[in-house]
């Protein structure tokens, strides 16, 4: 405990340093945040895209989830270290997406709009990076993921691109890890079949 107290005092002393030192201390943190956001942001945004119906909604709930995390950490309510932030963000994104779909009464209308403008939406805000030669793969994958039932697609997105374990996925989605594994394998099989159909038609090389 004494050892811990000393560390706390040291951090408290550092926080009262003069302004130039504080500015120089904050600059490395900003660039590290940029690195962290550049690394993990795409995965979180992909999950948000899978959970919502539009790119704008996905960006909004990602920002809201980050705000919630910051508020919880700053208020001292967050239990756990920075290792737990990602898991919290995934859970937050999902809950915010559910709240969003319940709050707005435009789901049916949105589906009609999406079905008409699906092609435009995909080209304007694709889910995946792709060189021009891989555009078809990207588009097919995105389309098939959208066609999957959400409970399978969300597990696939979290497992493959979020690199979460089944236990972490289960925790975020409030299901057992075996249920997460079962949904993942079923979803993967479905995705493989639908992409295989596209391959037979000569659409992609996956």
């Amino acid at each position: 405990m004494d050892q811990y107290k000393d560390m706390s005092s040291t951090r408290a002393a550092h926080s009262t340093d003069s302004q130039p030192a504080k500015d120089s201390a904050s600059q490395p943190a900003q660039s590290e945040w940029r690195d962290w956001l550049s690394t993990h942001g795409p995965k979180l945004l992909l999950f948000a895209r899978q959970q919502t119906r539009s790119h704008e909604d996905a960006e909004d709930i990602l920002q809201d989830a980050v705000v919630k995390l910051v508020d919880k950490v700053n208020s001292g309510e967050f239990v756990g270290g920075s290792d737990a932030w990602q898991a919290y963000l995934y859970t937050s994104i999902r809950r915010l997406a559910i709240d969003l779909s319940r709050r707005t009464d435009r789901r049916k209308k949105r589906e009609d709009v999406v079905s008409i403008a699906a092609g435009d939406e995909m080209c304007k805000d694709p889910w995946f990076e792709g060189e021009s030669t891989d555009d078809e793969i990207r588009e097919q994958l995105e389309e098939k993921l959208k066609q999957l039932p959400p409970k399978f697609a969300e597990v696939i997105v979290m497992k493959i691109w979020g690199e979460k374990t089944f236990a972490e996925i289960g925790e975020a989605l409030e299901i057992s890890q075996n249920t997460a594994a079962s949904r993942y394998r079923y979803g993967l099989e479905s995705l493989k079949k639908s992409l295989a159909g596209a391959r037979r038609r000569g659409d992609l090389s996956i």
Binding site: Q30, L37, F128, R138
Partner: peptide
């Protein structure tokens, strides 16, 4: 197949939040 990178505006907005 990598997820789409975040746009610079979104990164800037997130940085301001944290």
């Amino acid at each position: 197949i990598q997820p789409k990178r975040l746009g610079s505006q979104l990164i800037a907005a997130l940085e301001s939040k944290v």
